[in-house]
């Protein structure tokens, strides 16, 4: 029986060391993280190595990524948001490249683990909080007090704003994690129907075409989701950073 959960197993390759009692291992997840870093470096550094006036394919891709993220930041957080360009770019590219790699059969998808997406979401959350207080001082609290709200419902609105602020890292991380997890389980389940049906004989061969088509369609959808979730993660990062940059708006 094919196990759709098996693909999410984190498997130790070798031990790096211990923190207290906890073993720190180099796992398949670690390997795919390094693959993502290597691919991004290769794309961005190798792509710009030619420094051509008329870019080739790889250079176009590198420039496209650069301008796409830069424009996303400019449109959501303003020009001041470009301070966080390396952070947003790293997040977007890391998530997108690892998602794309994860679609290849037999690979591991880093962002299908809540701990990874949560770590990235908390990185954004703490960046926003720390930079928000650094830049605005106590004025950062203004983000919880929308202007133009009648005084008698203000306490309620402030309560909702504070609550949603602290929910941000959860929604931010669970959205990516759940999308990737669900997509990969669906892919695996439909893929496992193919050999099951094919095992039934001649009729099964024809029946197996249906889940095969489904897997192809789902793979296309997953390609979209892989990009879209990275984009959503990046744009939410920009929106949250916008709060820190313009607390008094």
């Amino acid at each position: 029986m094919i196990d759709p959960i098996h693909q999410f197993n984190v498997e130790k390759i070798f031990t790096i060391g211990h923190i207290g009692n906890q073993e720190i291992a180099f796992t398949n997840s670690s390997a795919y993280m390094l693959v993502a870093v290597a691919l991004i470096s290769l794309l961005m550094i190798g792509g710009s190595a030619g420094r051509q006036m008329v870019p080739g394919r790889i250079q176009s891709l590198a420039e496209l990524s650069y301008e796409f993220v830069a424009n996303t930041i400019r449109s959501t957080a303003g020009v001041e948001g470009l301070k966080f360009f390396p952070l947003v770019f790293s997040l977007f590219m890391f998530i997108m490249v690892s998602n794309m790699v994860g679609i290849i059969p037999y690979t591991f998808t880093i962002s299908s683990h809540i701990i990874v997406t949560a770590a990235l979401a908390f990185l954004v959350f703490f960046t926003v909080v720390i930079y928000g207080f650094y830049k605005n001082g106590l004025g950062f609290f203004k983000i919880f007090v929308p202007s133009g709200v009648p005084v008698f419902i203000l306490p309620l609105v402030v309560f909702i704003e504070v609550f949603s602020f602290f929910l941000r890292p959860i929604s931010h991380s669970v959205r990516l994690f759940a999308n990737m997890l669900a997509g990969h389980i669906a892919l695996k389940v439909f893929a496992s129907f193919i050999p099951l049906l094919a095992g039934l004989g001649i009729a099964g061969y024809f029946g197996a075409v249906l889940p095969l088509g489904m897997v192809i369609a789902l793979t296309a959808l997953e390609l979209l989701v892989a990009f879209l979730q990275a984009y959503v993660f990046a744009i939410l990062t920009c929106i949250y950073l916008n709060d820190a940059l313009h607390a008094g708006h």
Binding site: I24, I40, M44, S90, F94
Partner: peptide, 25 residues
């Protein structure tokens, strides 16, 4: 598995951030 993943992520993401901010961008 969390500690291993977090340590790997820390190393990978810091490396990526440095490469991206110092060289690539």
């Amino acid at each position: 598995t969390f500690a291993s993943q977090l340590v790997s992520l820390l190393i990978a993401f810091v490396a990526l951030y440095l490469i991206v901010s110092k060289i690539a961008l």
